[in-house]
Design a protein around this nucleic acid. Sequence first.
DNA 1: ATCCTCCCCTAC
DNA 2: TAAGGTAGGGGAGGAT
Length: 1097
Amino acid sequence: MTGSAEFRIKRPIEYMRAKKAKLKIQEAELQRQTPDEFPPIFRGLTIHVNGYTNPSHAELRRLIVQRDGDFQHYLSKSKVTNIVASNLTYSKMHEFRMYKIVTPNWIIDSVTAGRLLPWRDYRLYNPVASQTHLNFQETSRKSPTKASHSPTSLVKPLEHEDVSEAHQRTSQTEQSVSSGSSAGAYGRTFTSREPNEVLTSAEEDQAMDTAEPTSPADNQPSIDKRTRSPRRNVDDISSKYLFRVHELDASGSPPTSPRKRRIISMSHEPNASIVGAELNKELLANEWNRKNSSLAPDFMEKFYKQSRLHYLSTWKAELKAYTSRLQQEQVNRIQRRPAATRRLIMHIDLDCFFASVGIRDRPYLAEMPVAVSHSKGTDTENSSSDVASSNYIARKFGIRNGMNIGKARQLCPNLFVIPYEFEKYKKVSHKFYSIIFQYADKLQAVSVDEALLDISTQIAKADCGEEEEFATRIRAEIKEITGCNASVGIGPNILVARIATRMAKPNGHFYCKPSEVLDFMADEDIEHLPGVGWALAEKLEAKGIEKLVQLRQLSKLSLQEEFGAKTGEMLYNFARGIDNRPLEVDKPRQSWGVRFENEEQVRKFVTDLSGEVSKRLVSVESKARALTLKIRKVEATEAWKHMGHGPCDSYSKSVTLSRLTNETSLIAEHAWALMKQFNPNPNDIRGIGIQMQKLQPVKEPVANYNARHDVSSQRKLDFFAKSAKVTLEPDDLETSVSKRNDLQQEGRAHGTSGPTKASTNNSETASSVTPATETVASVPNRRQSITTTQTFSQIDLPPWSQVDPSVLLDMPEKTRKKILQAYGTRQIGPQTDHRDNDVRTEAPKQRQHPNPTLRPSMVSLPSASQLDPQVLEELPASVRQEIEAAYTKSTTGKLNSTETSAARTSSSVGARVGKGHVTKEATISLTQAPKWNLIRFKRQDDAEESGTGTDDIDPEVLAALPEDVRNEVLAEHHRTKLAEQRQMEHKANYEALKRIERKVNRSSAESVRVSSTPPSLMGHVYIDDIRGDLRSWVNEFPEGPEPEDVSTVQNYLFKLVTYKDLEKASLILLYWRALADKTGSGDWIAQIYGTGWRLVQ
DNA sequence: ATCCTCCCCTAC
DNA sequence: TAAGGTAGGGGAGGAT
Ligand SMILES: Nc1ccn([C@H]2C[C@H](O)[C@@H](COP(=O)(O)OP(=O)(O)OP(=O)(O)O)O2)c(=O)n1
Ligand SMILES: [Mg+2]
């Protein structure tokens, strides 16, 4: 479960070796008092360190620089002679293939030896094909230090693997490494007392006695640094997971490394693979069995239930939704406030939140060093559990949030560890928010215990002490209500406010006047700047910059050159206390993802995962249009032979879905398709992750809290309002149409138009643009839409694409016409123009023509799920209605009210309001699909299970329903429960948009390919794409297909069968049958069906 | 010129 | 025991 999106694999680590090496170096250095005395062994070399390394990145840099080596943070632009890495991803491996890649041991051993050792002896990856052996040899050759680890070596011969130990944080490593002499590396000795036990209510009393801070912070400095450094990088994590697993598998033998196993993944160890593929496989197999059989499902659930980070993330999302909603409701109130004469931002953060809540209910711990963690940390050596939060007393010992509990215990043997109490945190948080809400003009939820408030109008007289009073009042109230201390920072912008809070803690407040900003920030460490983490700080430090004052010396240009345009400017401005970022009050979520492990029945796993993903999407009330599958697997033998690559790597593939979805089946289908593209040997799979992107809220996210939604009426109002104004994206329609006709190339052309527009948007602007009041609820959505629109120069509302067709249907003809006209008037994108006009006017009516295929007759057929929304969209209203009506009947039964639709409704299309990404989103939105999609997809699902069945929901019926109801129905249909009503409005808009958009997309992409090529079928792996292809095919050749095409399709089916993807084959057949039934086009379709059926059989 | 994809980084 | 999740900003470099 790496936090990051990566799946790199790590290798086992050899603690001892690393530790010894480090100690040895330190020793050597001690002897040379002066830097000058370091032998210039690296002179003339330009070295770049990549990724996690055992001696830390910083440490290596020091060693290199001290010995006259040139240390380069960047590979490009410099004449790097050597790259030091413990592990490299496949892509990096490839990228670095022309360099001399060595392990950190090269540096260490050279330093230890006092001379430059031959780099070839320290290659990270052996270029030779038969690596296994070579590696072994290499290992043996390695420095004495290594030899010491012998036991491990058998399994993990590669030196670099050892190094991988580095994956752990340095700090952790140390602990775990030295059982007896902990922290020896730093020269500290820890008294080993009996660690305090975890305090549970029962034990608490006793614990008290023990509690006395031990050695305070002498060592903090060094430790501190290390602790911070961290970045649990991908490597780190993966190594843990992967390895652990491995060890477990090896069962009989004790784990080589002390680490614990966080095994989430099913990975195997890379080393094992190195040693012998067979051994590796065996291990893997065991692993699989264990995991597959039962663990997976349960495991994940439990895992999440105890994952603090998962909670934090979840809560944050909820709070965002919650605060967004509340603020929308308060728009009026805010507007009434006096005009602000200056911008005043307040940052408020509860002190040591988790610890605070725990201590609140355990008063006797008030004066003790306390930490919140799953583990007591008794086993200092092995416990890798994290300290989520520690109180300020504990911090005096050098303990920090996120620190390994084992290390924390070393720092403070008498540390009191209390368990997590997630429910309490949530309650406190809610209280906290309800309080601060009252003092804010605007509020941005930052975290469960942290928020940014715009208090510009809350203080009448500036700089007269009112700011402090204000802070005091709020803090007192929070203390009273929640029992927790809060610290407050106030300043002219977010940056200053945050830093002020830093200074204010614990339990204090600080107001920084605008005039004092420069001085106030001058001495701040660069790493305290929000956005500056380990990596940036390292680079800056390498340039000799540690304080903001120093940062101010650099020109904006040079900063941008080195760190990129945005980052460079950010650094430049932040160094000066300048921060123009607006509070993000209602930014809708843009993506959503889940991560997990899986296995041999990769398929099943993928399916399960898809279900989970789907669930989450639903819960977020969003749908996604893009899917990324990441897998971690053992590198193919061949691959590494050629590449000299390591044993394993991570890969990812993404797909842009033809429409938005949150359906399990669809997700699974795509994920599986991607998986097949990788065609991994099940045994090689170490992990699988599925991430959905390009989300579009179906509607608005609902907060768990007490969210109440508005009235349905609103939506309607909104809708209308929008429609009236709308800009629309007739383009889409047209585009799609055109594409269809073309059928030839397209790929994703329309996306383009969309994006461009989007890029322009600004959330703020958008919001401001939003016209009326009624809209309030929908604000977010509007924004997005607006944004999009703006770009185009349009207006407020929903882009045409957002218009819900069903809504249109609902309206009286007159109204509908009006709206359509409105749309028609505006034009937008280049492509669109003409069409727009057409569309509006005729949109409904003439569309169909372009594509003969599209004709109603044709369309009508297949199950609703099969209907292509795009097609429908393009049809004239009358036709569409007919079609829909036809479906209605069948579907109706299924429709229930509720779930799905709501979700979809959501919102705003793309979401990111302020960024460059917006563009994408916009694009995305264009692409997406609406209810129809859902239905359709759903259908697919259904189809899978029951067959063609299909029509759960009749579009027509839906159309006839009031928006709310309709939405609800859809929602329910889907299963998830999402939504709330107010979103309906949004939903309606969005859905409409999506439908249209997606249609457009689809048509272009799918249709085109159908006829195009044999491989085309193959080119399309996803069931929906294939269906689209088939549909198009049928439509295009009512009289009969080209023999060539027929064979192509058969071929495809055959391959599916061969591939054992009977499921898909069946689905395709079912779809085909449906096409045949409804189309009535000719026998040929039926014939093919028969052939295919036999084949599959 | 922009895109988009694949990362990397940061934050809690 | 232990649960190293997850959203979003951003950059590099290839595709268009
Ligand atoms: N690495 C981390 C950082 C934070 N948290 C959790 C526990 C914290 O209590 C909560 C809030 O994070 P803060 O950064 O605000 O830290 P604290 O509130 O604990 O301390 P303070 O704000 O006083 O610095 O998030 C966590 O689990 N792991
Ligand atoms: Mg806090």
